[in-house]
Design a protein around this nucleic acid. Structure first.
Lengths: 214, 214
DNA sequence: AGTATGTATTGAACGGCGGCCCATGATCGC
DNA sequence: GCGATCATGGGCCGCCGTTCAATACATACT
């Protein structure tokens, strides 16, 4: 066949991305193949290679969208929560998000580009921009004289901690953590870490008297 | 060919396990195949299937050994540290261990048994026995009236948090975390969480005055 | 030493998968 | 009609896990 003009290039691109996403969500990456995608959209395998370099290219784009979605939800969650509940909400949102798209989330974590070529720059940017909401929310909690590096460090720590809980319940082989118990642990982690932060900022460099936050 | 009697069954088994381990450590699971293992040990592919059900079976055994090793190192680390430093040492040991065997560690996390059959019981036991050292070390830190469930919960939380940091630096695609900075973050996580625990145990159910640990 | 018996090992073969390419032909805008 | 463009889909090549009849060896027995 030749040109169909049923879909524009742009529509076709989106069609491919949507089909791939749904295959992954259902069957995981092991259920994915060029032929399978083609079957889903009613085109032939060759078509994929008119729109994307190769499958890894396509996967990267899907991962990027997932990261964008997550970031968006984090930002919204933080905005819609009262100040003193922002960090817990952020954590819960992160956890829920990964629970809602477990297969795609696993892809994001586990997908490696063959020949250990580095990931594109824009991808790394998206990763590290996940950190921003945590920094923003952590900011008003910390003492004013906390150094920027220390702020970032705390943000990373808590981000990584949350990430650990999510990945333990997503990776079904270590799943001693269920969806419900995950929420509890997330809360434990965040609240206790926060308590620790407030304790050390009151005991540390600053000699100011302890400020109770409530 | 027929029987060689160069290696006993047991030796052959170990040979296979060793070869597989080294292939994974070098090339990751993508570099692994029955033929590749056979080449390494100078036997034919068929031989593998005299000793193991299939490749997944073999992989599970390798994962089990990794878990055993880690558990052993955790226990030793805890024993050789002064009481008030046990938790940080535990965390650092966990982190170092995964850094020392990144590919094999990733295998452990990412390997799924096809047809989503469940993992054998002994495997789950090994996973959850990783929690034990953390519980043991956390125990003397917590208030005496902390319930057993709460203890386990805290142990899980901190375990998962540490796990998150390790997996962020092992999964090279999110690697905003280097080996060095990982150590720093691990310390941050553990120390702050601990501080938080002590704060809440002093402020919570118990009305005992704050106990400074130094 | 020779034969028989059982077994450990073989490795070719099966059936299937996969990514990716490209000569061909269909369909478009003009 | 005519060239440009887009989609095709069969085919190339390579990989994989796994099997099993055949075989070469070790052992036991005569």
């Amino acid at each position: 066949m030749g040109r169909r003009s049923i879909h524009t290039q742009e529509e076709l691109r989106e069609l491919i991305i949507a089909a791939t996403t749904s295959i992954i969500d259902e069957a995981g990456i092991d259920g994915l193949s060029a032929r399978e995608i083609a079957k889903h959209i009613g085109y032939s395998p060759g078509t994929l290679y008119n729109m994307f370099e190769n499958l890894d290219d396509l996967l990267l784009i899907i991962e990027a969208r997932l990261l964008d979605d997550l970031r968006q939800q984090l930002i919204e969650a933080a905005q819609n929560a009262p100040a003193h509940e922002r960090l817990p909400r952020l954590a819960a949102t992160y956890f829920e998000f990964t629970q809602n798209h477990p297969k795609r989330w696993s892809l994001l974590i586990e997908h490696r580009i063959p020949g250990n070529h580095p990931v594109p720059d824009w991808y790394e940017d998206k990763i590290s921009s996940l950190l921003q909401p945590f920094e923003d929310v952590l900011d008003p909690i910390l003492d004013a004289d906390t150094s920027p590096e220390t702020r970032r460090q705390h943000a990373r720590t808590i981000w990584a901690g949350i990430h650990g809980l999510t990945s333990l319940s997503t990776a079904n082989k270590l799943a001693t953590i269920t969806n419900h118990s995950g929420q509890v642990l997330i809360d434990d982690l965040v609240m206790t870490y926060l308590a620790g932060l407030q304790r050390s900022t009151s005991h540390g460099v600053s000699t100011a008297p302890q400020k109770e936050k409530r």
